[in-house]
Amino acid sequence: MASYLLKRLGLSLAILITAVLALFSLIYVVPGDPATIALGPRATAEQKAVFRERMGLDQPLPVQAMRFVSQLAQGDLGTDILTKRPVLDLVSAALPRTVVLAVVGLGWAILLGVPLGVWSALRPDGWTDRLIGIFSTSVIALPSFLVAIYALVVFAVMLGWLPAIGAGEAGDPADQARRLILPAFAIGVGWVGYMARLVRAAMLETLSENHVRTFRAFGVSDLRIALRFALPIAMVPVVAVLGVGMGSLLSGAVLVEVVFARPGLGSLAHDAVMSRNFPVLLGTVVVTTALYVVANLVADVIAALLDPRIRQEA
């Protein structure tokens, strides 16, 4: 297991460095002059030149990239060109809200999607299986930002059941929880159907194997077989997909945060794009990429713990 973990750590580090360099290059070819945005349209050419020199924007792109990687290794994400605050402080303040939103959204989707998948696998081709299949396919096709808009209009504006925008008052967990319901619902509803279909397929494959037939021959109930033997095996591909799908989950969280005006990484990145605030944009993108890499690493490790064959193959 230690050898497998070291290999995964090395691969994750290589992926992160490559992604950071690629994203750095892409961000700095976006149209827009940070000097003009920071100093205003009335700034002289000399003032802009001094600003670019102080920020290192007058250097070639490879030099800027290597300097950024060097600073990143020391925990420095740069400085906000508008507020002059460290980007690390801005990202650190926004990161917990985005992580909580993603975890809660994915958590309720798993709690609902996995039982639906197990129920469908135990009664394949029945009327409940067909209903769950129709529901699953329907919600998978719904974009998270569209669900967010309709949830905002229906439950916050028309019915007035839940608050519309914001993340809640600091120090008031009840208010924060109420304002988390709609965003978490918006990013998690598509994953309910995805989890249900994935668990159903994995369970049907496992339930058709010879050792399951042996259990049935000895009188073991289908429910016990499903929960005790089939479900742990079926969760291996589910865990792997969750790691890969973290990218789409985070991108959905970005859009949902903008819709509900939640002060998270999504709103921070959106404001940085609109103002061409490249250091803040790059900092949020780097942190989001790191979250994605870490999520994949954790998913791989959990899958290896659930299935020893993965460790042996590695």
Rank of each mutant, 00 (worst) to 15 (best):
residue 278 F to K: 06
residue 133 G to C: 09
residue 181 I to W: 04
residue 59 Q to A: 13
residue 255 L to D: 08
residue 301 V to H: 10
residue 26 L to R: 02
residue 73 A to T: 09
residue 144 S to K: 12
residue 227 L to F: 09
residue 268 L to C: 00
residue 285 V to S: 10
residue 238 V to L: 05
residue 92 S to V: 11
residue 95 L to G: 04
residue 274 M to K: 07
residue 5 L to H: 15
residue 4 Y to A: 15
residue 194 Y to T: 09
residue 190 G to Q: 05
residue 278 F to R: 06
residue 248 S to F: 13
residue 27 I to R: 02
residue 100 V to N: 12
residue 263 P to C: 03
residue 147 V to I: 14
residue 231 L to I: 01
residue 249 L to R: 12
residue 245 G to L: 06
residue 267 S to N: 11
residue 311 R to E: 08
residue 263 P to W: 01
residue 49 A to T: 06
residue 278 F to N: 07
residue 63 V to K: 11
residue 175 D to K: 13
residue 49 A to M: 07
residue 150 Y to E: 14
residue 230 A to E: 02
residue 34 P to V: 07
residue 42 R to G: 14
residue 116 L to M: 00
residue 286 V to A: 08
residue 262 R to I: 01
residue 93 A to T: 11
residue 15 I to V: 12
residue 137 T to W: 13
residue 196 A to H: 01
residue 144 S to C: 14
residue 154 V to W: 15
residue 207 L to V: 11
residue 131 L to K: 02
residue 213 R to T: 09
residue 53 E to D: 12
residue 201 A to G: 12
residue 254 V to I: 15
residue 262 R to F: 01
residue 91 V to D: 01
residue 3 S to Q: 13
residue 83 T to K: 08
residue 84 K to C: 15
residue 243 G to R: 02
residue 79 T to R: 09
residue 289 T to H: 08
residue 145 F to S: 05
residue 144 S to F: 10
residue 45 A to Q: 04
residue 175 D to F: 13
residue 254 V to P: 03
residue 232 P to M: 05
residue 279 P to T: 11
residue 150 Y to N: 10
residue 46 E to F: 02
residue 189 V to D: 01
residue 48 K to I: 12
residue 119 W to T: 04
residue 142 L to N: 06
residue 57 L to S: 01
residue 19 A to H: 09
residue 271 D to A: 11
residue 258 V to F: 01
residue 107 G to V: 00
residue 148 A to V: 10
residue 141 A to L: 15
residue 29 V to N: 12
residue 64 Q to L: 08
residue 81 I to K: 06
residue 149 I to R: 03
residue 56 G to K: 04
residue 55 M to Q: 10
residue 224 R to M: 07
residue 305 L to K: 12
residue 2 A to G: 08
residue 138 S to K: 15
residue 32 G to Q: 06
residue 150 Y to T: 13
residue 48 K to H: 08
residue 178 R to S: 02
residue 185 F to V: 07
residue 92 S to I: 15
residue 229 F to K: 07
residue 151 A to F: 11
residue 68 F to S: 00
residue 311 R to G: 06
residue 33 D to E: 03
residue 280 V to M: 04
residue 59 Q to D: 13
residue 229 F to L: 14
residue 177 A to W: 11
residue 222 D to Q: 11
residue 299 A to S: 05
residue 70 S to A: 15
